[in-house]
Amino acid sequence: MEITGAKILFTIPILGGIKVSETIVNTWLVIVFLFVLIKIFTWRIEKIPNGKQALAEKFVLFIENLVKENTGKTGNKFAAYVGTSFLLSIMCSLSSLVGLRPPTADLATTLSWAAIVFFIIQISKIRTLGIKGYLKSFLSPAFIMLPFNIIGEVAVPISMAIRHFCNIFVGCVIGSLMGVFLTFLSTAVLGNLGVSVPIFKVGLPAILSLYFDLFGSFIQAFVFIMLTMVFVGQAIETEE
């Protein structure tokens, strides 16, 4: 077997051929699914909420409270961004459950998301410190710290991206490896008895999937948004 990156599904024949990978197409599917899900959950919202509306309200308030606690921001936009980030991340990771290659198992995806977080952090800092103060902050406490400060800033999104990517990707890899290994084991042990079905593949992968796909997806999405909020919160607090 071979562990590879995302398959390239088709190429748009402009600008010298834009390759569209599995990751992008799967993200589109996730977006469509999320759109339908959101539409279902907010279908005919009323003042007295029914079950699914209450769930949607709970989610929105949960995200808002998290944002408020961690950044002190009360604006709708940032909360909506955090909510988006969470939903997209978790749904992308969970897409492995229906046999898709999770878009979050592609560094390009998580790194692009983290880049947005990086921009938000930098913009927040500029807003609170002013452009002069912002540039000066790279020289503190001394001029010599400039490269380290820059590395420190850049390390934030990179570490976020790699953490998210690795967790999901490793989940996929381990799943594949387990599949291969259990098939091999089945054949080796039961092959001589004339059982050609890899019977050992039943059971264990499900438990692993429970951890890597369900639990891991949730945890990684949560960690991703928590880090987003913490770093943005720090950027806002630097003014004090």
Binding site: T27, F35, A80, T84, L87, W113, A115
Partner: peptide
């Protein structure tokens, strides 16, 4: 292209979440 696509996707889902959920 990957990065641009991802950002576009993020923008689309952000608008959806903002307009239809939040």
């Amino acid at each position: 292209p990957d990065i641009v696509f991802t950002w576009l996707n993020l923008l689309v889902i952000f608008l959806i979440v903002k307009k239809f959920l939040f």
